[in-house]
């Protein structure tokens, strides 16, 4: 018992003292995941909106594909990216295996479907809700799209946060393509995995605490946004 409480206090002091190793790992985690989310938003949201508003053959298949991709295990994405960028892979010449770029790529693949899928849902619901009124008013198409994105702003931000949460928390993909190299590709989740297996519970726990705190922050931000957002459907019953 004393052992565990020692570990706990050591972890707390690591967090509070702003230990260099710890800060470096947290910073890389944030850099990788935020970049991945940024790219995923840039690609996923327009894609989701386009699919949501479009009517074309095969739309259902795309929707199904995105929905299926939402639940894909990170290790599978890791494996896929590994095979692509490893020396013998088709993208081996890029020489990005075991770099943050590879990690960003893996997380990007992991969360783009989530963002595209949720965006499609949001935009489609909003469109269904407003379509008649917009048609009646002859709202030009580009205005309609902008207005719908504006209407869905809270939900869309929530979507991005959900993506960030998943990216920060996953370990399977980044450990495969990043390799958990100290000072280079070591992020919070991979460090926790390593330090735990090495027996350095204090650092692992310290990172765990930081990760938990971030997860709490992200989730309470999401919850705060949800509570502020009135329901999409606001009609006279």
């Amino acid at each position: 018992m004393t052992d565990l409480s020692d570990v706990f206090f050591l972890a707390i002091s690591l967090v509070l003292s702003g230990n260099n190793d710890l800060l470096e790992i947290v910073a890389l985690s944030l850099r990788v995941s935020l970049t991945a989310v940024g790219c995923a938003v840039l690609v996923g949201m327009p894609l989701g909106a386009a699919v949501g508003l479009g009517r074309f053959p095969g739309k259902n298949i795309i929707v199904l594909f995105f929905n299926a991709m939402m639940g894909i295990p990170p290790v599978v994405v890791g494996l896929f990216v590994y095979m692509m960028v490893s020396k013998s892979g088709p993208l081996g010449w890029l020489d990005i295996l075991y770099t943050p770029t590879a990690m960003i790529t893996a997380q990007f693949i992991l969360i783009t479907p989530i963002i595209a899928s949720l965006t499609r849902q949001v935009i489609e619901d909003l469109h269904q809700h407003h379509a008649q009124q917009f048609r009646s008013l002859c709202v030009p198409r580009h205005v309609a799209i902008l207005e719908l994105l504006r209407e869905g702003r809270t939900s869309l931000l929530t979507t991005a946060m959900a993506g960030l949460g998943r990216a920060m928390a996953e370990v399977g993909a980044v450990i495969i393509v990043g390799g958990n190299i100290n000072h280079l590709t070591r992020v919070m989740t991979t460090a926790i995995a390593l330090e735990t297996s090495k027996g350095d519970l204090a650092l692992a726990l310290a990172l765990g605490i930081v990760l938990l705190a971030m997860s709490l922050i992200i989730n309470s931000a999401v919850m705060g946004l949800r509570n502020r957002a009135p329901s999409v459907i606001g009609t006279v019953s």
Partner: peptide, 19 residues
């Protein structure tokens, strides 16, 4: 057509509001 619809207005049974 759209030009003529612009000169019409409709209040729907379930009015839709922007947020």
């Amino acid at each position: 057509d759209d030009r003529m619809r612009k000169r019409q207005a409709m209040v729907f049974q379930n009015p839709v509001m922007l947020n």
